[in-house]
Structures are given as structure tokens and as C-alpha cells.
């Protein structure tokens, strides 16, 4: 119980320190609060429902291909999300071509293709293993 209370106190202390810092040490606390809460709202209200919908759609895929589709969407979707700011390229600057120098759209397609190929091989191997494990 004592360690628990100590840990709560440490946690609360860090949170208060951070809040104090945001209020006194950042350039725009209001904008900060907007992004902080906005991130949760967009995530919980739009992003996850969209992912759940996609997930539900994958249950319509024939069982033989379902695993492949789910694995590809999971890995490919996450990678696409992280790569999106690079692909959109809003950060490019005329005075500095060493920033975002690559063809990110093309590169993302390459990466997604590799993911799909790996997913095919992986799910096929898994199915093969399962079949040979079958005691029949």
C-alpha cells in the first residue's frame, strides 16, 4: 500500500509539473490543449471506428484468404500512416533539397508490395504447418 501511494504521488507530481510547464513554458497553451484533446477525439471518434469497420469487412473475405488480408492491412496500414507526412510532402522547401529528398509515394508502394508478398508467404506457411500438424 505504501509503495502504491508513493507511486501515485510521483505520478501526480510529474503530471502537475508537466501542466505547469505547458502553462508557463510553451508558446501557446490554448493551442496545446486543442491538439491534446483533439488528438483523443479524432482517434476515438473517427480513426478507431474506421479501423473497426475495415476489420468487420475483412470477416466477409473467404476464410482461406482472410488471414492474409488482415495481416497486410494491419502492417501496411500502420506503415502508411507513419509514412503519410513524407508522402504528402508539406515539409519540402525550395531552399533545401536535402529535406524529404526521396520519391515517397513510389517508395511506399514498394514497401506495401513487399509486405503483401511476405504476408502471402507467411500465411501459406502457417496453413501448411497447421495441415501437417493435423493428426488425421
Amino acid at each position: 500500500m505504501k509503495t502504491r501511494i508513493t507511486a501515485y504521488a510521483i505520478g501526480a507530481g510529474f503530471i502537475l509539473l508537466g501542466l505547469w510547464g505547458v502553462l508557463t513554458g510553451t508558446t501557446n497553451p490554448r493551442g496545446w490543449a486543442f491538439w491534446f484533446a483533439g488528438a483523443v477525439i479524432v482517434h476515438d471518434g473517427i480513426f478507431v471506428p474506421f479501423v473497426l469497420l475495415l476489420g468487420a469487412l475483412t470477416t466477409r473475405v473467404p476464410a482461406s484468404h482472410r488471414r492474409f488480408v488482415q495481416a497486410t492491412l494491419l502492417v501496411g496500414g500502420a506503415v502508411t500512416l507513419v509514412a503519410l507526412p513524407m508522402v504528402l510532402g508539406f515539409g519540402q522547401r525550395a531552399d533545401n533539397p536535402s529535406i524529404l529528398p526521396l520519391a515517397y509515394g513510389r517508395n511506399l508502394i514498394i514497401v506495401l508490395s513487399v509486405i503483401a508478398v511476405v504476408a502471402v508467404v507467411w500465411t501459406a506457411l502457417a496453413r501448411h504447418r497447421k495441415r501437417s500438424d493435423d493428426p488425421r
Binding site: L19, G21, G25, T26
Partner: peptide, 12 residues
């Protein structure tokens, strides 16, 4: 500064 101070909130 925003990223720095929010780190404390996250860890707490």
C-alpha cells in the same frame, strides 16, 4: 517546449 513538457505529463 510543448513536446518537452508533455513528456512529463505522459510519464506521470
Amino acid at each position: 517546449s510543448a513536446h518537452y513538457w508533455t513528456a512529463y505529463i505522459l510519464v506521470g
